[in-house]
Design a protein around this nucleic acid. Structure first.
Length: 870
RNA sequence: GGGCGUUUAGCUCAGUUGGCUAGAGCGCCGCCCUUACAAGGCGGAAGUCGAGGGUUCGAGUCCCCCAACGCCCACCA
């Protein structure tokens, strides 16, 4: 018995019903296609603290379209979900909780704190996994992973220890980027540079021999407290004589040398630079080259240390003003200029980064770079769109060593132990209990690893590596990665390096890069901070997940940003409603249901059926081509127009003209059913909920649409008659509209065909679709008061007498003539050009000639009609 | 200082081997409550494809140059 379908589609009710059915049926597991070729996408793991935003919605919609189609195509398709432990972000959330209780993490200690984070995770973390279900993500939840779970942590240790054994993981004292707020080291890509207004302070450093001074320029005068030298370019004539002399550092009264160094830019400032090896990366290098001492004058809280003398204890910015004032007091400042310069900020908390000399762990990435570049250069892995490859190469070629240690508690603790007795460092997978020297006085390194370290292993660690699991053998290397360009450096490049190094294969074949979702109104990136963010969850509640997905997919041209507003979502919702009603009509009013899941394509579908099936076949072929190239927006734009403008607007209307007791009714129902079935299949990856619901009304058998087969349509050739039918109907409608003729008036139309009499079905279609009474007969005499229409193979005549004011037809014909004239002009121009005839392909020339002949004939006829009208 | 992207209808955007009269959604105008859908149907108006130059029989599409806007990278202290 048929279920009654509501005339208005209600997404909320339908969507909440289907997801559990899919999930519980195991449809998202690759095991549903046990013999299928493996196809795997690993999800970019959202932060455990994350809530679903538009960026996720886009990223997931794309991945879901890809994986759902592959599943329907019979692949053993796996979309592997999971989350990232998100070191700093998560630690901050729990620290905020503690702060509300009036305590800090140091009050409860490391172990208790980590316990609190786990407790938070099980209670509040991972809400995004429920939100992904609302979106319809067909991820295999039985394989869900977490970067901090046991298996992945084992992979992290294995990688760390291996890199250490290979000499690629080392501990060193370097200038690193320090966030004084998050109180941890950061890698250089976690620092965002912004141009800001600042000052360039020119300070005089007197020579110790009393003969003059040298002026240095700095944006950070407070660092002068730690100066241990002044550097000039060795070829700079102004300063050549100064090299080797010493100056007296003001305020500190420290004698420091002037050195010559090629890295100094003579054109900047005074051409002489103060050297603070402990607080500037360039100065650190210069200091090393010239054996200058490193004096730490700023601590991890961004305060001046005891080495800073009278300024000790001051905040760095307070000290900047104080140092300037003191220098001015002793007349050591030559001038202060306004100066815009780039200032580094913590990408997480926006604090100004402090370059600090610090003992940290680093990965020597150079040996990993070559294979990662080669994999892309050779085409083993390709970026889509290709232009991102250039960015990837450029970044790879300019890599610094990766600072991986973080001064946090939430993260993978560095598997290094230090022996207090002998000073030995032990790096091992298993926790050591005793040192080679016999001492068991071992301290594990306090630091944890950069969150991105475990993310870099994601494609293989989630599949079981370093164990040789079945999943790893089957699904690695994975097929496709889908992500935004903003994390190519953070994540994609590192996965490539680690994947190639540890598995000897690139982790993906295709890397699909999409843009950012933007607010269509302002053009800005959607973000909470700018207050222009659309909340996908609110949109899902209001419009349905299908609408949000389709809007994103249709807007997402490959590699471009996506402007989104609710109009797009609303248009998608209307499409869902249209689809709903089209199928409701077929099921309830045309008795189309029990459509077979596979095949069932009619061998003799009749002319309308052959037309729609040939269009379906063409469109499916094109959609497959577009989807294979990841052009989702083009594919679904095409399908959207096909479904609405051709299937619903034309074919469904044609089907209506065939009454239930007509001999052609059974074949029409079969054809309509098969076409609608395949439309549902083609749309399912984009709008899974409404299509699954409609499938349950339309199709026969127990199979869910989610695991149904992708369409494979036999060839059909379309009868030419259908084109002329559509053209003539459109022209009659235009005629009616132009002359404001009510639909209630049936227009008598005499139709003349070139050869055979027109079939009854054709006349019946014309009659219904154009609300006219067609008569297939001889060409009427050349009496006045007729209008004439052309369509391939047929002409139509309408007597204007009694239908319209005959005079009103004149301007219409004149307009038609003007258009035809223009067209003929263009055509003749082309054809009279000898070069065109010589050089254009013969088929293009022939096409042009045929077109001209046709248009000329029509022009002659319209001119004749105009004359008849007088 | 490098690199990349964008510029097409009132708005937001498609347009990938150069080839009929450049498309879509929304908006706008007219008619229609036709029993799938008024969240709809039918019809319509609207674009010198950022400026200039070049290649070509033919350029929104390829090349050069310019302009505006946006993004990324970069240790000018």
């Amino acid at each position: 018995m048929k279920a009654v379908m509501n005339p208005t589609y209600n997404p909320a009710e339908v969507e909440s019903r289907w997801y559990p059915i899919w999930e519980n049926s195991g449809s998202f597991r690759p095991e549903v296609n046990p013999d299928g070729e493996p196809y795997c996408i690993v999800i970019p793991p959202p932060n455990v603290t994350g809530v679903l935003h538009m960026g996720h919605a886009l990223d997931h919609a794309i991945q879901d379209v890809i994986i759902r189609r592959k599943r329907m195509q019979g692949f053993a398709a796996l979309w592997l979900p999971g989350m990232d432990h998100a070191g700093i972000a998560t630690q901050n959330v729990v620290e905020r909780e503690l702060r509300n209780e009036g305590i800090s993490r140091h009050d409860i200690g490391r172990e208790a704190f980590v316990g609190r984070v786990w407790a938070w995770k099980s209670k509040s973390g991972g809400s995004i996994t429920q939100q992904m279900r609302k979106l319809g993500d067909s991820t295999d939840w039985s394989r869900e992973r977490f970067t901090f779970d046991e298996g992945l942590s084992a992979a992290v240790r294995k990688v760390f220890v291996t890199l250490y054994d290979e000499g690629l993981m080392y501990r060193a004292n370097r200038i690193i980027n320090w966030c004084p707020t998050d109180h941890t080291a950061l890698s250089e890509i976690e620092v965002e540079h912004e141009d800001e207004a600042g000052e360039l302070t020119y300070i005089r450093y007197p020579f110790t021999d009393g003969d003059g001074y040298i002026t240095v320029a700095t944006t950070r005068p407070e660092t002068m407290l730690g100066d241990t030298g002044v550097a000039v370019h060795p070829d700079d004539d102004r300063y050549r004589a100064a090299i080797g002399r010493t100056v007296m550092l003001p305020l500190m009264n420290r004698e420091i040398p002037v050195v010559g160094d090629d890295e100094v830019e003579p054109d900047f400032g005074t051409g002489a630079v103060k050297v603070t090896p402990a607080h500037d990366p360039l100065d650190f290098d210069i200091g090393k080259r010239h054996n200058l001492e490193s004096i730490v004058v700023i601590n991890t809280k961004a305060q001046i240390t005891a080495e800073g003398g009278e300024f000790a204890g001051m905040d760095r910015f307070e000290a900047r003003a104080a140092v300037q004032a003191r220098l001015a007091g002793i007349d050591a400042i030559e001038k202060i200029e306004e100066h815009r310069h780039s200032v580094g900020h913590c990408s997480r908390c926006d604090s100004v980064i402090e370059p600090l000399l610090s003992l940290q762990w680093f990965v020597d990435v150079q040996p990993l770079v070559g294979p990662a570049i080669d994999a892309v250069k050779s085409g083993r892995t390709r970026f889509i769109p290709k232009r991102w490859e250039k960015n990837y190469f450029h970044w790879m070629e300019n890599l610094q060593d990766w600072c991986v240690s973080r001064q946090l508690w939430w993260g993978h603790r560095i598997p290094a132990w230090y022996c207090d007795a002998c000073g030995e460092t032990i790096v091992s997978i298993e926790d050591p209990t005793v040192c080679a020297c016999g001492s068991n006085d071992l301290r594990q390194d306090e630091d944890v690893l950069d969150t991105w370290f475990s993310s870099a292993l994601w494609p293989f660690s989630t599949l079981g590596w370093p164990e040789e699991t079945e999943d790893l053998a089957k699904f690695y290397p994975t097929a496709t990665l889908v992500t935004g360009f903003d994390i190519i450096f953070f994540w994609v490049a590192r996965m490539m390096k680690m994947g190639l190094h540890f598995t000897d294969d690139a982790p993906f074949t295709d890397i699909v890069i999409h843009g950012m979702v933007r607010d269509a109104a302002s053009g800005r990136k959607m973000s909470k901070s700018s207050g222009n963010a659309l909340d996908p969850l609110e949109l899902i509640d209001e419009y349905g997940a299908d609408s949000v997905r389709l809007a994103l997919i249709q807007s997402a041209a490959p590699g471009h940003d996506i402007p989104l507003n609710t109009d797009w979502v609303d248009a998608s919702r209307r499409f869902g409603n249209k689809l709903w009603n089209a199928i409701r009509f077929a099921v309830e009013f045309m008795d189309v249901d029990g459509v077979p899941v596979d095949g069932g394509y009619p061998a003799q579908p009749g002319p309308e059926g052959a037309w729609v099936l040939s269009r379906l076949s063409d469109v499916t072929t094109e959609v497959d081509r577009l989807l294979d190239e990841y052009r989702l927006s083009d594919a679904y734009g095409l399908l959207y127009n096909f479904a609405w403008s051709e299937v619903f607007d034309w074919y469904l209307e044609m089907a209506k003209t065939i009454s239930k007791d007509d001999d052609r009714a059974p074949i029409m129902r079969q054809t309509l059913g098969v076409v609608l079935r395949d439309v549902l299949k083609l749309f399912h990856p984009a709008i899974p909920f409404v299509t699954e619901e409609l499938w349950s009304h339309l199709a026969d058998g127990p199979e869910l649409l989610v695991t149904a087969s992708w369409p494979d349509i036999p060839e059909y050739s379309s009868p030419e008659h259908v084109d002329s039918l559509q053209e003539l109907v459109t022209q009659i409608r235009q005629f009616r509209s132009q002359h404001q003729i009510s639909r209630k008036i049936e227009i008598p139309v005499t139709i003349v065909s070139g050869d055979d009499p027109l079939p009854d079905w054709w006349l019946a279609q014309i009659a219904t679709l154009a609300d006219c009474s067609p008569f297939n007969g001889a060409r009427p005499g050349a009496e006045t008061g007729q209008t004439r229409m052309f369509a391939p193979g047929v002409e139509a005549f309408i007597s204007l007498e009694g239908l319209i004011d005959v005079d009103a037809e004149r301007p219409r014909i004149q307009k038609v003539i003007a258009e035809l004239d223009a067209s003929i002009g263009r055509s003749r121009g082309k054809l009279s050009n000898p070069s065109f005839r010589d050089r254009a392909p013969a088929e293009v020339v022939a096409q042009e000639e045929a077109r001209l002949a046709e248009v000329e004939a029509e022009l002659a006829e319209q001119n004749r009609l105009l004359e008849e009208l007088g």
